[in-house]
Each structure stands twice: as C-alpha cells, then as structure tokens.
Design a binder for these strands. Sequence first.
RNA 1: UCCUCGAUAGCUCAAUGGGCAGAGCACCCGGCUGUUAACCGGGGGGUUACUGGUUCGAGUCCAGUUCGAGGAGCCA
Length: 449
Amino acid sequence: MRILARMDTIIRDLHRHVGHPVTIKGWLYNRTDKGKLVFMQVRDGSGICQAVVFKRDVDEATFETALRLPQESSLIITGEVRADPRAPGVPSGFEIGVRSLQVVQRAEEYPITPKEHGVDFLMDHRHLWIRSTRQWALLRVRATVMRAIRQWLDSNGYVEMSTPILTPSAAEGTTNLFEVGYFDQKAYLAQTGQLYNEANIFAFGKVYCFGPTFRAEKSKTRRHLTEFWMVEPEIAYCDLEHLLEIEEQMVSYIVHTVLTENQNELKVLGRDRSKLEHITPPFPRITYDEAIAKIKELQAQTDDEEQKQLLDITWGMDFGSPHETALTQLYDKPLFVTGFPSAVKAFYMEPYPDRPEVCKSADLLAPEGYGEIIGGSERISDPELLLKRIRDQGLPEEAYRWYIDLRKFGSVPHSGFGLGVERTVTWICGTEHIREAIPFPRTIYRLYP
RNA sequence: UCCUCGAUAGCUCAAUGGGCAGAGCACCCGGCUGUUAACCGGGGGGUUACUGGUUCGAGUCCAGUUCGAGGAGCCA
C-alpha cells in the first residue's frame, strides 16, 4: 500500500494537486451512492469538491461509514486528486479518490436539505443557512467588497478613523435612532460617523470610517436592514466634482476586484458578468432637475395605471424607490444624480451660491433597479450659514457646538460620502434581497439568530 | 403606520361546493461502478398557527389574535 503524504490543502487550490494525494478537512455537504460507489460533496470553506469512495479502494468499514454518513458531518479525507470533467463542485472538474476517511463528528439530522425551502424557515436557520453554496458565495463576495474598499482607500492616502457607535444625539436629525441606556443618560446607536470624520479631516486630511450603522426605521422592503455596514470617506479641500471622481474610481475598483477574485462565487450566483465588466469611470451624471423631467416623461409613456401613480412626482420631492428604479433602468452604469433640493437633504449640505434652494449633493444609483448605494455632498464650510441651517431645522444648537467649531479654526471646502456595503453586494451579486448580503441580518421583525 | 398575501408531516406543497389529511423530498431498510436536487422497491412520521363561533360534520365557512412575507411610506 502506498504511503500517502499528509498535507493540508484547500479545495479552491485542488487544480494545483492533480495526480497527488491531499488531505481535506471539512464537512459533508451532500451525498449520494450508486452500488459500489459513494459520491460525497465535501465543503471546506474555500470551495466544494466531489470525493468518490469506491468500495474496492477502501476497507469495508470505511465504505460503510461513507454510505451512512449524515449531511454536514465533519470529516477529514485523504486521497488522490483527479481532473474529471464529470465532477461537480466549486470549482468543478476536480475530485478526490478517497483512500481514507476520518469522521470528526457524525452530525444529527440536518434541517436544511439541498431542496427548496421558504424564507421564514431559512431565516430562522440563518446560522446553518450560511453554509449553503449560494449564501457562501454572497458572503465571500461581501468580504471581497469590504477588502477592496479598504485597499482602495488605504492606497490612496486615506487614514482609517473609528467613529463612535454610541452617540449623544441625532447626527442628522432626519432618521429614527435606536435609544440605549447610558448610565443616567440616554445614548443613541450611530446612524453615521460623518460628523466626527469632518473633525478628523482637519487632523488627517483624508479619512474614512468603516463600521456598522443603525437605523430604527420601520422599513419593510428588500433594500433595508436596521443594522448595516457603511464606509464613509471624508476629504478636506474637496468639492463636489472632485468627490464624484473619487466615488466612481472606488466603485469601479470594487467591481473589478470582485470580477477578478470571485469568479467561482459569481458563477455559483449565476451573475451575468457582462453587466459588471463595463463598470468603469466616468459614470453618467444628471441633475435633479433633469431627473424629474425624465421621470415625468417615463410616467407619461407608461400605460400601467398603478405605475403611473407610483411615478408621480413634483419638483421638491425626494425620490421614492419606484423613481430610482425607473431612472436607473435608463442606464447600464451607476448613475449620479446631483443638486437635490436642500429641503429634502441633511442640514449640512452646501447650497449652490446662485441657487440656494438646491445643494451640492449627489446620490449614486446602482443600475438594474438596485437603487441608491451612495449618498454624498459638499459640506457647508461657513460657520454662520451652518448655524442658520441648524436653527432653521429646529435642531438642538448646543449639541452641534463642537461641529460648528470646526468651521471657526481653518475651515475649508470639504466633501464626503457614505457607501452602503450590503446594497453594493446585493447589486454586484445580482441578488434579490439585501438580507442575504450580511451574515446575520437585522430587519424590523428579525433579531434571531 | 397603510395595502396585499400567507401559516397543513422535519422541509416544499396538495386536499372538487363543508364529508376517511395526501404527495415529493429528508430520515430508516434493500438494489445498482459515474451520481450531478440520481434512480428503483419498502417503511415510520400529523394538536391542519392560536382562541372562539356556525354546522350532524370544519384543514375548508365566520370573527378575533399571533407570527411571517411582498409592496408603499420612511430611509442608505
């Protein structure tokens, strides 16, 4: 009998070991048998490969074990790697001819089968669902997206600054926040780190924060989570035009990093790569005024009464999701909409000098109806104007004292944006629902598991 | 908060006009040397979400409750 070398190999790299023995430590994803053959699909976190147990190659006890092993049992297998076009897997085309099999734990009956399941059931079993191929692929893409964001920012001179998650008051005054007890005071979970980053730029020039943010909105749609991850770059000496260039560079870098590094994952997801390959700067730019005109045009063209109703809009209103969807379907790249009415945006956005009713703001809308993935703006740099805006909106002036201070000691034009990680992942993966783009989603009716 | 839809075996679903609660998958047993959600034969498995009502009889009809999903609004 041949002595098999023991070495740890990961499934993703099997192609490098054809003709050689390998040891894989993983879990049994699925199994089927045919007489003297047992086909096992084995996962190890990096991929899935087929392991074939042939009765003549192993002792009787090993064959019997393979034949009876329940789904999701943990196991260590050793055998020779073969290239075989019949072999399924991620990546496919390689399999292991099993010589030895060690069961680490024989699993109990596993609730999630390779058959179909309902959303409610899967969400209740999210802790197990993440093992399924599709979820595995999505979450690996998410990890790439987050890594690409850091890589791009770090290599372009941005300094990562952690901003507080426990905050004393509403940062923007626009959204509902989660209230938590803070000794004898009340605190709120952060909805943004932006205001703190505006302090950070005066120390570091270009900064970003990257972490979870919280919104207590009772949103009940496929685009919303109550806890989601956002990266927020903030740049000193930066106007809106410059900001848009930064955004399109970064988003393009993220997309192309995923295209390069997650080929297997995109294949599992059935994502059409041609929808992503042309995502390169520049992205189209339209103004809010132009967007309103386009939406009205689309509204006039449709015969669907319900759609006509949903697309109804007048100048001054913020976009609803039907408007965003209709707009983005006109383009095959992410779309910048600039110059929103100041009244529908946050208090700190710089108005246009010749037209103060609109502000230097820009949303980036992902194509294929995925909607807003970035909100950004140039910030007000004049302390007097900022104070006026705070007063006009009825915000607690005292809470913003430090923020106004920033404009008194070397104020400069500056801009920043926030990119929602899960929305970006949902778009890049071409998937239906944002809840699959984060390991353990928090939505209005879900806090378990 | 509003609108729509749903809850039956572990899972996905079916059950004619109110008349014996069923199938596929999963699980267990048997067969097969290339399965791709294998296939073939056999087996066990039910508080029909909950509460009440109508009826000789309710999974089915009525009222309420709970939980969930999709959408709107809100928001990124």
